[in-house]
Design a protein around this nucleic acid. Structure first.
Length: 106
DNA sequence: CCCGTGACATCGG
DNA sequence: TCCGATGCCACGG
């Protein structure tokens, strides 16, 4: 869909589609955009392009529910606080994917 | 234009 | 069960 937009923007759009109180993995995002193996690229976009307030990268975690890097604020600490603020319980930088994993379907 | 890098994911020993 | 190594993608210099 929409196709004329760069892969990067597509990822941002997908991440921005994650409902509040839910989280998604980098692999999940990559798969939704059509790059099941581009999980790395997804994280790369967040890191190189901190669209921060425009892209809720704090709702994106690793395949294990583990909160990985964060280029903004105080790092993972800030990220963790934002998730908890949205209703997602975070234990030691780890969220319960069984409860909060986004299905990809809004 | 070519090389290096990185916030992941998966497999093997 | 835990640890290490590899593959993939796109961006930046």
């Amino acid at each position: 869909m929409n196709t004329i937009i760069p892969f990067k923007k597509l990822v941002y759009k997908t991440v921005a589609s994650i409902p509040k109180g839910r989280v998604a993995t980098y692999g999940q995002i990559a798969r939704l955009v059509g790059k099941p193996t581009g999980a790395r690229a997804v994280g790369c976009f967040m890191r190189t392009n901190p669209d921060a307030p425009h892209t809720p990268c704090h709702r994106v975690v690793a395949w294990n529910g583990k909160l990985t890097g964060y280029s903004a604020g105080g790092g993972l600490v800030q990220k963790k606080m934002m998730l908890e603020n949205e209703g997602v319980q975070v234990l030691r930088n780890t969220v319960d994917l069984k409860k909060y994993l986004w299905s990809g379907i809004v």
